[in-house]
Simulated scan of single mutants.
Amino acid sequence: MCILFVAVRQHPEYPLLIAANRDEFHNRPTQASAFWPEQPQILAGRDLQGGGTWMGVNRQGRIAALTNIRAPATFVADKPSRGHLVSHYLADTPPADYAQWLAQHRNDYNGYNLLFGDWQSLAVYNNHSNALTSLEPGIYGLSNADLHSPWPKTSQGVAALTAYCQRGDTDIETLFSLLRNDTQAEDAALPDTGVPKDWEKRLSSIFICSEEYGTRTSTLLLINRHHQLSWYERSFLPSGAVYNNVSQHLQISDYL
């Protein structure tokens, strides 16, 4: 499913800051983020079952990340993996107008939000509503509904990221702590997305921990005033214990 928190020109050091969790079944095979051997311009994790990825960057400075829309009543099992939308955009030659391509192919995929662009110009496309939203300077939370849905966990994360930016904090551990928040919503505040109430409760925290399904990775993407991109990823066991760390740094000024 996933959740994204995005700060656009809100931090004194980082014009762009993204903090994201990927939530998935623990038995779905996954590869930690790295540069892809066959497409070495792409830095991303890999979904080894469906193909593609949930979040990534490339050496040209493009960025993409995906959240699924939780709408079980409209889910069609044999549609292609939405992760291909991210890797498609990060490949060498995406369509010149990717938003138009997404709109033309919106019914080919189950529900999703796609964040895409570069550090100077990001947008979110929602295929359920066929809506494209450009991200103006501000702080955003995007979970498994549209960009403007004030779910409790998105509101919590936006508040925490706002405080981080206002302090001018540069400690990445603070951001990882934001993503580690396992506070579940009160029953009265739970959204009604069509899944059983026990699942609504389980999915209502930023960090999800359970034996079969939960937060698999936390990822930070930071671009500073010198156009240096930093990428940090932590992977988790079903218990919530960290079992892998990734750190990569790119200079993107040559690609502006």
Rank of each mutant, 00 (worst) to 15 (best):
W36E: 03
H105K: 12
S121P: 11
L161W: 03
S129C: 10
G194N: 01
G50E: 02
G168K: 02
N68F: 11
D171Y: 01
Q248M: 08
I63Y: 09
P72T: 09
L135V: 05
A19E: 07
R106E: 04
E173F: 08
V8L: 00
N244L: 09
F176S: 02
R225E: 07
D47N: 05
E13H: 07
S230W: 01
A73N: 15
Y109F: 10
L142M: 00
L115R: 07
T193Y: 00
A188H: 13
I63E: 13
L178V: 05
R59F: 11
V6S: 02
T183D: 13
Q120A: 13
R46K: 15
Q248E: 07
R180A: 15
V124G: 07
E200Q: 09
S218I: 02
N126Q: 15
I252T: 05
I208F: 06
L4V: 00
W54Q: 12
A131G: 06
N107D: 15
A160K: 15
Q41F: 10
D97R: 09
G111I: 06
V242E: 12
E24N: 06
A65K: 06
Y14S: 02
S230I: 01
P150S: 03
L175G: 04
R225G: 03
T174N: 12
P29E: 04
I42N: 05
G50Y: 00
I172M: 05
H11T: 08
L147V: 03
L229V: 02
R28T: 04
L237C: 03
A64M: 10
P95F: 01
L142R: 01
R106Y: 06
G157H: 01
I63T: 11
Y125F: 15
T174K: 05
Q156L: 12
G138V: 08
D146S: 09
P12T: 00
V8T: 03
D182G: 14
G52L: 09
S235D: 01
V76N: 14
R22Y: 04
S143D: 01
Y164C: 05
A64N: 11
E136Q: 15
K201R: 14
A44D: 09
Y255L: 00
P37G: 04
W231K: 03
R202H: 14
G51H: 11
T217P: 09
L256C: 10
Y125S: 08
L229W: 01
F176L: 06
N245S: 11
S247M: 03
D187T: 14
V158I: 14
Y109C: 04
V8G: 00
S149G: 02
D97M: 08
L178A: 04
T162K: 11
A44C: 13
T133R: 14
V57M: 11
L178H: 01
G117K: 11
L175Q: 03
S204C: 12
S129K: 12
T74F: 13
H88D: 15
Q100M: 10
P150T: 02
P29R: 05
A71Y: 12
N127E: 10
G61D: 08
V242N: 04
P137W: 07
L90A: 04
K79D: 08
P72L: 07
L135R: 06
N181P: 10
P40W: 05
